[in-house]
Each structure stands twice: as structure tokens, then as C-alpha cells.
């Protein structure tokens, strides 16, 4: 057996038949633990690296378990025929996979050995050296850029954005992976045309970047906050209207060379 099959990591879910986070039919491995604390986060159980209990539909459920790469790949491999027929594969999401880089790298490598497409959905908030070691095994990097203004970024996510923006540039320059920029469109935070366009203009200048996804805010994570006995910071903020999203998309496509998609 390959030695990297024994590498361990902490995840909280594996979701099969996901069709919105990368090409084709995908299996998503949700890492536990994240460096950011985005107010709108729809997976609050992903934030802490600690194993915790969440109430789901009235029943206690343990969130988080330690698994080996081999255990994860046993599940991933089961959907091989569907990846083959759809050019799909494995997506690492979270949480943040960059916080468990050895585990992430081993998973991506194992997926590549299987011959399937790989993607990560990531904040990009880590040392570039950490990211760099994943790139040889990564087909698509779905990277969140939430705001160009670092002060505002820090206020809503807990961290400044310099490192994220720098990493975006370095990843793009490496030309080792397809970099796709994703923007969660959060009312009251970044949903003005100017704010979105600032991000798009930044993305447009990144060498080789062709795609930007605008992901409308939704409050579907609200119940999970209750289940974790945490307060939901977004209150009653409504999701952006379809027309509004369309308008933002139009603005992006008119002013940049990017292909803009609403939703994942």
C-alpha cells in the first residue's frame, strides 16, 4: 500500500453526488477547522477543529471524526464510474483544507493516482509554501475572495485579506492549476456594484483566470447555529434577489473579460 494512505485527518462529512463544486459529479470531503470566522458561514460546524456535538432534527450528532486517507478514498472510489462519465472527481471543502496540508495533499495525490479530477474550495488563507505543495495534484482551485478592502474583510471574517490576495496572484502565476474566483455576495458587506467589480477587476488581472462565480447569500445555515447553541450573526438579512444577482453579473461581464456564473 502507498504510504500516504495512512495519513490521518479530521473531517465532518463526505457528500456524494455533489454537482456544484467543480466539474461533473463530485464527492466532497468536508475538513474540520477553519482560520476564518465569516459571519455568514453556512457550515458553522466546520469552523472549530475540535470534535463537537450538534443537535440535528432533535437528535445529538457528533460532528468530526479522524480518518485515514485510505478510509476516505474507499468512499471516493465507489463513485468512480460517475466521475468517468462526467469528468468529475474529488473536491476538498470545509472548513479549510489548507489547515491540514499533509492530509489534503495525500488525498489529492490519491485522487490523481485514481485518475480523477481534483478541486479544492478554499479561503487561500495560509502560507504560500503550504499551498504550493498541493498544486501539482490540483486541477481546480475554487478560491474565495470576499472583499478588496482589508479593514472590512477583517471586520466580517476575522482576518485581513493581504495574504489571500497575494496567494491568489502567486497561484495564478504558477499556472499549475485552474484558478476560479468565488465571491459570496453578502448583503450589507460586499453587495454593491462597486465592491463586486473591485473583486472582479482584481480577478481579471490574475494571469490565466477566466471564471468568477457569484454565490448569493442564503440563510440555510441558521438551524445549525441553533444546533450548536450559537448565535446567528446575520439576523434576518434576506438573500439577494435574482434581478440583483443578474445585474451584478452583467456589471462584471461588461467591465471584465471574465465569464461570470451565478451560483456554483
Amino acid at each position: 500500500m502507498k504510504d500516504y494512505f495512512n495519513v490521518k485527518g479530521r473531517i465532518f462529512d463526505i457528500q456524494r453526488y455533489s454537482i456544484h463544486d467543480g466539474v461533473g459529479i463530485r464527492t466532497i470531503v468536508f475538513f474540520k477547522g477553519c482560520a476564518l470566522r465569516c459571519r455568514w458561514c453556512c457550515n458553522p460546524e466546520s469552523q472549530s477543529h475540535e470534535i463537537e456535538t450538534m443537535i440535528v432534527n432533535g437528535k445529538k450528532k457528533v460532528m468530526g471524526k479522524d480518518v485515514t486517507v485510505q478510509e476516505v478514498m474507499e468512499t471516493v472510489r465507489r463513485d468512480m464510474p460517475y466521475y468517468t462519465r462526467s469528468d468529475g472527481g474529488l473536491t476538498l471543502s470545509g472548513g479549510e483544507c489548507l489547515l491540514q496540508p499533509e492530509f489534503a495533499k495525500a488525498l489529492l495525490k490519491a485522487a490523481k493516482d485514481m485518475g480523477v479530477n481534483t478541486a479544492i474550495e478554499s479561503t487561500g488563507f495560509a502560507k504560500y509554501e503550504t499551498i504550493e505543495q498541493l498544486l501539482p495534484y490540483l486541477d481546480t482551485y475554487l478560491m474565495d475572495i470576499k472583499h478588496i478592502d482589508s479593514v472590512k474583510h477583517k471586520a466580517y471574517t476575522g482576518v485581513e485579506n493581504q495574504r489571500i490576495l497575494e496567494n491568489a496572484q502567486k497561484i495564478a502565476k504558477s499556472r499549475q492549476t485552474e484558478l476560479v474566483i468565488r465571491v459570496p455576495v453578502i448583503p450589507g458587506f460586499n453587495d454593491s456594484e462597486k465592491e463586486i467589480l473591485d473583486i472582479a477587476t482584481f480577478a481579471d488581472k490574475l494571469p490565466g483566470v477566466r471564471k468568477i462565480h457569484l454565490l448569493p447569500y442564503h440563510s440555510f445555515g441558521r438551524g445549525k447555529y441553533e444546533g450548536l447553541n450559537r448565535e446567528y450573526a446575520m439576523g434576518d438579512v434576506a438573500h439577494p434577489e435574482d434581478e440583483k444577482m443578474q445585474k451584478l453579473k452583467d456589471v462584471v461581464e461588461k467591465n471584465t473579460a471574465l465569464y461570470c456564473q451565478i451560483g456554483g
Partner: peptide, 17 residues
Amino acid sequence: EKGLESFVALIRGYFDQ
């Protein structure tokens, strides 16, 4: 389009097995 394409791939994956 993605929904339809994935649906077709689901059928084909089942049939491949």
C-alpha cells in the same frame, strides 16, 4: 445544463456497473 449532464452521467455510471 449541469443538472441534466450530471443526471445523464448518473445513469451511465449505473449502467457501466
